[in-house]
Design a protein around this nucleic acid. Structure first.
Lengths: 147, 147
DNA sequence: TGCGATTTAATCGTGCGCGATTGATATGAG
DNA sequence: CTCATATCAATCGCGCACGATTAAATCGCA
């Protein structure tokens, strides 16, 4: 049985290829905003809660400072965020949205119809897919931690 | 409603984070084999059908030569594949598994129990998740093409 | 109080993805 | 047969991811 497992039979490849398809779909929507897809995810996290530490942002996004620091510096360079040392604890760095970064939220909400059209209109199906993936991720995280 | 959409509410982020969790889960299994996760996907495609052109491999993996050429050269450098110009059409390059590349298949099949344990034992659920993702990817590819 | 252990961000090197371009080979219309 | 067009792999530049390491600040305990 394992001996006949093709690429398409693998769940891992379904996730891999769906991920890249998502990024390709978002690119033309995000390009006019001047942000990449990972940067858009950072913005989503900051629109939800501003002024977080890099560590907290990383916990939400499942990313470490080796990825986030250069990414946030690029966002700072184009004026989307400000990085300030935390006066309460000089080890940590706080990330704040600039006015430009805040303003992008409205523009991003304008993408919704395009995203909805691309993803499909079956909200039930999409929400269920999302929840199944979150459960799988949580399970994998748990196993990887212990293993 | 859109104004309260958190990171976790987004299907795109569920896919993004599940993808990275999958890669993290596979890493300790693939490291001893000396291959990366994308290289493992290439091997899956080649174990299924050997001696393909770069273009065909790319069609299966949804990757272009700008990604595949350097990746295949790295696999050639460690002796997993051979790259030969196609005598029938000198524009194309054929990719062949070496004996070492073929031998890795048995070792990869040994990962199955670990993967199964990490992913969970509900094969029905996992197969359904896989099929839903393939349908989403197909839909996104269609929309992106036309758009 | 002093000092080792811990926490935090930053840095470095490597390997993807991919938009854009290049160069070589094949194809096809006239 | 010729030359424009198409196809194919390769190349280049940039931005992630991430393992490993470093440096600074804080914490905790003797």
């Amino acid at each position: 049985m394992d001996f006949k497992m093709s690429l398409d039979d693998h769940l891992c490849f379904a996730i891999y290829s769906a991920h890249h398809a998502i990024v390709r779909m978002y690119r033309p929507l995000l390009d006019p905003m001047g942000v990449t897809y990972p940067q858009y995810l950072v913005l989503l996290a900051l629109w939800e809660q501003d002024g977080r530490r890099v560590r907290e942002l990383g916990a939400d996004l499942f990313l470490d400072s080796n990825t986030l620091t250069p990414l946030l510096k690029r966002m700072q360079a184009v004026g989307l965020v400000a990085r300030r040392r935390n006066p309460e604890d000089e080890r940590s760095v706080l990330i704040f949205l600039t006015e430009k970064g805040k303003a992008l939220k409205a523009q991003a909400e304008g993408m919704s119809p395009c995203v909805a059209e691309a993803m499909g209109d079956d909200m039930q199906e999409l929400a269920e897919l999302r929840d199944r993936l979150h459960r799988l991720r949580a399970r994998l995280d748990g196993v990887t931690q212990k293993g």
